[in-house]
């Protein structure tokens, strides 16, 4: 294990005291330290939102990109240099709202990246509007009469979209969360870690207490993580109890293993810029 201080950023997090995202940051640091990933080989990519500020708070390479576009940025970086460990962090609005399309496509590609979503069921940074995971009838500034849409179910969505590692954690249980993240990073292929990360300022319903009363660990129930059918069933559980832990885990070839260029082994970033058969290339046009 590497020292946790190796990942300490000069910048102190500016999240509200008590924000769930602190727990996620600590768990991530714990996970990469356990895995002994050198900060120089770690790239943390995010979108925009309170949660997406995370790359600034960890000492590692980072890309704090646009709202909803973290996954394509991470995809490009990973395809250019598969030697990097790429972790994407962001919020529910970022990943399940504006960036939903990229989320689904990244999963069906089984790109070897880890996606941590700080799901607070609200838009935190923009001061409290409904999010795609807000519970039905949830009253917010943008839904004074209560939301009337069904929430997105990210776990179910991931299961049917081809993600090969699907987990849910709770930032109130950082030790368990760190394990989930660590396994997610180690996992070869797309790993989703959806995290209940309470927004103490704008979401007064889905609080720490709310989750403490409801969550239970799948692992404690003799659950089989290779059973997709069971995983789908579990993904729909919410009342009265909510499962956390690994829902599903499987091995499939990753995108990097299948891509005809990456398969050859040399990371594109280390490949020579010049072409080996210039004459042959030019003669194609004659």
């Amino acid at each position: 294990m590497l020292e946790l201080s190796k990942y300490k950023s000069e910048t102190r997090p500016d999240w509200c005291p008590g924000c769930g995202d602190f727990g996620v940051l600590n768990a991530l640091v714990q996970a990469v330290a356990n895995l002994e990933i050198d900060p120089k080989d770690l790239l943390v990519v995010s979108g925009i939102g309170c949660s997406s500020n995370l790359p600034g708070f960890i000492h590692a390479y980072g890309f704090h990109s646009l709202h909803g576009r973290a996954i394509p940025i991470a995809t490009g970086a990973r395809l250019a240099n598969p030697e990097l460990t790429v972790v994407v962090t962001g919020g529910d609005g970022d990943g399940y709202g504006i960036g939903l399309g990229h989320f689904i496509h990244a999963m069906r590609r089984n790109l070897d990246i880890t996606y941590i979503v700080m799901n607070n069921q609200i838009y935190g940074l923009t001061t409290g509007q409904a999010s795609p995971t807000s519970q039905k009838s949830f009253v917010t500034k943008s839904s004074p009469m209560g939301t009337i849409e069904e929430p997105v179910n990210p776990i179910a969505l991931a299961l049917v979209s081809g993600a090969t590692y699907v987990a849910r954690g709770f930032s109130g249980d950082p030790k368990h969360l760190a394990e989930l993240i660590e396994k997610g990073i180690k996992h070869k292929g797309f790993a989703l870690v959806d995290v209940f990360s309470p927004c103490v300022t704008w979401n007064k319903v889905n609080t720490y207490d709310y989750f403490r009363q409801r969550v239970y660990k799948l692992n404690d129930t003799g659950y089989d993580t290779s059973d997709l059918g069971m995983a789908l069933e579990k993904s729909r559980e919410w009342d009265p109890k909510i499962p956390i832990g690994i829902f599903y885990e499987t091995t499939k070839p990753t995108y990097e293993e299948l891509d005809p260029v990456l398969r050859t082994g040399t990371p594109p970033v280390k490949a020579s810029l010049s072409q080996s058969d210039v004459d042959g290339l030019f003669n194609e046009f004659i």
Binding site: L43, P72, I73, G76, R78, A80, G101, H102, H105
Partner: peptide, 19 residues
């Protein structure tokens, strides 16, 4: 890619990584 939003952001990600 799935759309042009992804296209350019993938390009930027790849360039950021150095290619």
């Amino acid at each position: 890619a799935e759309d042009e939003l992804a296209v350019i952001n993938m390009g930027i990600g790849a360039a950021h990584a150095g290619v």
